[in-house]
Design a protein around this nucleic acid. Structure first.
Length: 271
DNA sequence: AGATGTCCCTGGAAGC
DNA sequence: TGCTTCCAGGGACATC
């Protein structure tokens, strides 16, 4: 579920509240994608210094080491002084003197992993291959274009791969390509410089807008305070197969790329 | 090295 | 109603 906007919205919804908290205990439910990698008791007494985000990972900096959290496809976090009893889909809790951080994840593609530091093997494996952050200066339009020129795969799949830019998932890839007027099936290396620059801008515009409205709540996403997002109300193409394009009225088309659904307007988006 | 397919897991919707 | 099949926001990994 969660792409960059949802993860960032989640981060902002509890980062200040948890900063400075001391860990009382760690509770584990059913196994997540990867093991925690440390004995839960070993984290007791450590202080949470802050919460950062890298791509779709949340990094909880501890005074010694860090916790990497990923929401997978169906994960969400809650943070509150106290929470109701855990349910069957709650699989991780970080209990602190300021409240409980709980990971709810029915599909369990998410993860909570401890790393001794950012150079730790597990941290490098998970974070090492990530591309630049789209909403920072690190995402350079000319470097982006140069990267596209070296890839023969369809542009939609190159965006999802996460090495030229991070955080763009299935929803925002379709939306960004619509805004840029580019058909998702176009080979990345066939995209001209002006179109690449337009796509670069479109990715920033779409992600910023989604962030501003709290992300997308397709099914059950909410931030750590339980609030929903609203971007799903203004998608131009995502999940709108057969419905009229909001710009030209042509029926939105759907196709599958790499086992994932893609949506586009056959008129507004050029091959 | 890059591209592609598979798999992890569960729940809900659609089809029969 | 009940069973089966398909699909869903991600991404590591194996294989070619």
């Amino acid at each position: 579920m969660p792409e960059l906007p949802e993860v960032e919205v989640t981060r902002r919804s509890f980062a200040d509240a948890i900063a400075g908290a001391v860990v009382d205990g760690v509770w584990l439910g059913k196994p997540l994608r990867w093991p925690l990698g440390v004995a839960p008791a070993a984290l007791v007494g450590r202080r949470v210094q802050g919460v950062r985000r890298r791509g779709k990972y949340l990094l909880l900096d501890l005074d010694d080491g860090l916790l990497l959290l990923h929401l997978g496809m169906s994960g969400s976090l809650q943070f509150a002084p106290s929470l109701p009893p855990v349910g069957p889909h709650d699989h991780f809790e970080l209990r602190t003197d300021r409240g409980v951080l709980r990971l709810h994840d029915p599909r369990r593609f998410g993860a909570a992993v401890y790393a001794a530091g950012e150079q730790d093997a597990v941290a490098r494996k998970l974070l090492g291959g990530l591309g630049p952050e789209p909403l920072t200066e690190a995402f350079d339009p000319f470097v982006f274009h140069a990267g596209l020129r070296q890839r023969r795969a369809a542009i939609k799949q190159v965006l999802l791969a996460g090495d030229l830019v991070v955080g763009v998932g299935n929803i925002y890839a379709s939306e960004s390509l619509f805004l840029a007027g580019i058909r998702p099936t176009v080979r990345a290396d066939r995209i001209s410089r002006p179109r690449a620059l337009r796509l670069h801008g479109a990715i920033r515009t779409v992600l910023s807008r989604a962030l501003a409205v709290g992300g997308s709540t397709l099914k059950d996403f909410s931030n750590a305070q339980g609030q929903s997002g609203y971007f799903q109300l203004e998608t131009m193409v995502y999940d709108r197969a057969g419905q009229p394009c909001r710009v030209c009225g042509a029926p939105i088309k759907a196709l599958r790329q790499g086992q994932r659904s893609t949506f586009y307007c056959p008129v507004c988006q050029k091959p």
